[in-house]
């Protein structure tokens, strides 16, 4: 067994366990912590595949921004000591069945799709150098559009929470 394979299995195991913790934990704080762990393992996978730029971005955006946002909301709203809503067992069973069915089908589709062709690997595609080139040349317009999207999302979020205050007054 190669070292990289070993690292892959370890990372995969940690990631799956963390993901399970995320969806099963009673306390949302635990969920969030599980999610952070899971995201870190995914970033590690990125590093394994020499996609360093995305690994950084993943940590910064997901772990740094999004998860912190979740954490903020949960803590500021005191959602962690909310009485656990007693989800009916039927929902759990049907959720498990639905997820299982989907997984089965995805696996089945993986099995039947056989024609995966390996291209000659170039090691540097995940580096910030090549990605930056791509973003600033071919994808310049979508890149700028992304900034507009983020800007409008920010305005939307502000507006959504602000209007509430005006209503309460």
């Amino acid at each position: 067994m190669e070292l990289s394979e070993l690292i892959f299995y370890i990372l995969a195991f940690i990631g799956i366990v963390a993901a399970l913790v995320t969806v099963t934990a009673n306390n949302p704080i635990y969920s969030i912590l599980g999610l952070i762990v899971c995201f870190f393992t995914i970033s590690a996978h990125f590093v394994l595949m020499n996609a360093q730029f995305l690994a950084m971005v993943n940590i910064i955006v997901y772990a740094g921004a999004i998860i912190v946002l979740f954490l903020f909301v949960v803590m500021m709203m005191n959602l962690n000591d909310l009485p656990r809503s007693n989800t009916h067992i039927i929902w759990k069973i049907s959720g498990a069945i639905g997820a299982g069915a989907l997984m089965l089908l995805l696996v089945a589709s993986l099995k039947v799709s056989g024609n995966l062709v390996q291209s000659p690997t170039k090691g540097d595609i995940g580096l910030i150098h090549s990605l930056g080139h791509a973003l600033m040349n071919e994808f310049l317009v979508p890149f700028i559009m992304t900034s507009i999207l983020l800007n409008s999302a920010m305005i939307g979020a502000v507006l959504l929470s602000k209007r509430e205050k005006q209503l309460q007054k």
Binding site: I16, T22, V23, W91, A96, L102, M103, L106
Partner: peptide, 28 residues
């Protein structure tokens, strides 16, 4: 690995009622 992670996310969305956790499952 990705199929398993994705299915765990789906499981979370389907079986939980807490909106925050559903949201996190979607992120997963």
């Amino acid at each position: 690995l990705t199929v398993i992670l994705f299915s765990i996310g789906v499981l979370g969305v389907l079986s939980r009622k807490n909106a925050i956790i559903i949201f996190m499952s979607v992120e997963l």
